[in-house]
Amino acid sequence: MTAPLRKLGSLLHKQQLDRDLDAELATHLELAIEENMQAGMSPDEARRRALVRLGGLEQSKEEHRDARGWPALESILQDLRYAARTLHRERGFAIFAILIIGLGVGASATVFSVLNSLLVRPLPFKGPQQPGLDSQQDAHRR
């Protein structure tokens, strides 16, 4: 039950978590390099081997991010942010697109409301096919 909450939290505290992970992986590499150098490797070789054993710095971070959050939700948010940025950058296009969509929705709604009252819903009388007087008024006349 706590896991979903923590995952949600990981979306909100992304930067803090990334900093933590960076520090953690930096320590990991330092320890590994130190051990390799004690085994007699040159600093460059020690660093290279440490990175190979880790399986790549970026891959490790990516894997960590996938495990801690909801990758699907995160990529949707990323797409939304990208869309917002693009629309912001190309104002003219954005306004034009919004107008077109508004026009489309408005026209569809108008046509539907007309057709709905004409064709789909029957008139609120008994026997709407036979125009005539209301039954109560009928009774009065008789």
Binding site: R6, E24, L25, H28, L54, G55, S60, E63, A67
Partner: peptide, 13 residues
Amino acid sequence: NQGTIYASLVRLQ
């Protein structure tokens, strides 16, 4: 790959 340890640690946490 030692890096996968960290993903495992997150899961376990």
